[in-house]
Amino acid sequence: MNVLLIAGGWSDEREVSLSGARMIHAALERLGHQVSFFDPALDFANLLRVAREADFAFINLHGTPGEDGLIQAVLDKACCPYQGAGAAASYLALNKAASKEVFESAGIPTPDWQFVTRVQGPDTPPTLPLPVFVKPNKGGSSLGMSLVRTSGEFPAALNTVFSLCQSALVERFIPGVELTCAVLDHRPLPLIMITPKGDAAFFDYHNKYAEDGAEEICPAPVPDEVTRNVQSLMVKAHKALGLTGYSRGDFILSADGTPYLLEINTLPGMTPTSLLPRAAAQAGLAFEDLITELIRLGLEERGR
């Protein structure tokens, strides 16, 4: 097939996107596909045209555009199939406050939260007991995220977020073990336990992408009951958001054994250190097999 590989973009996660794209590009060629690379940051005006000429688009964008549904909406106009969630579901998942509303309505545990906009300003007081996490309401890779332990740190944390976007999500800090669970075609993959190395207070940008940034154990060394519970919640959240193809969710397992869903990523990372390829490998899917399955699911969902 003629595959349009879309990566790069203009978000702060551009370099992560390009890193994963190199791995995907090589895999697609090994599978016998003809690959054309497209970077929306350099040639957005031609996306509709080139998409109409492709048999399939493989999206490897993070943040905006990509996870916000914009690229998917253009591809839909071009009648070009692609992997993963559609435009509306992508936008809903990227907006942390909106997705938390969906989680709560579906009975999925998620930490208590507060939504703060730039209109309200950095002097807005916290409504949750400290400590709290303050993070951009839309975005990933832990960019702009702060752990606030005192009320005096709250305005600076909000200003950090407002330098990146218009709204912040404030989330109650829950001590516990970080787990991640991916879904492929409504089937959960093995859990991964994540433990940041060094002095990091949480799984930050460095821990996520440095080769020695974190200890990631797959399958996660947790009781079978916990594994089944997290996997069940992940599939439930995937369906509640209207996602298709694949996704990956981040959880905190509290001391009392409750798994709290933090957020869902609709375009999980595909770098050599990324979590989805590792979980897929544990389930018996080599990287090329994973790419093939994502294309199959995309064609099944949106094939011409």
Rank of each mutant, 00 (worst) to 15 (best):
V170C: 08
V119W: 02
P109W: 03
A73M: 11
V183M: 00
F154H: 10
V183T: 01
L128K: 07
S163M: 03
L169D: 10
I174C: 07
P175E: 04
V170D: 14
G84E: 01
P136G: 13
C181I: 05
L128T: 07
K77P: 06
F154T: 03
L169P: 09
P129M: 00
A89N: 07
V102K: 06
V102R: 05
D112T: 10
T110Y: 03
G107D: 13
K135A: 04
S151G: 00
W113H: 14
Q120Y: 10
G152N: 08
I108S: 03
G86Q: 12
A182I: 04
A73S: 15
G176K: 02
T150I: 06
L143K: 14
A106R: 12
T110G: 08
E104T: 14
M145G: 04
P111H: 02
R187A: 12
A106C: 12
A73T: 13
L164V: 06
D76H: 04
K135T: 01
V170R: 08
A168E: 10
V170P: 10
L184Y: 00
V148L: 07
H186K: 13
I108M: 01
L128D: 13
T117W: 08
D112P: 14
S142Y: 02
R149D: 06
L169N: 10
C165N: 11
T180E: 06
T160E: 01
V134S: 12
T180C: 05
D123K: 12
E178I: 08
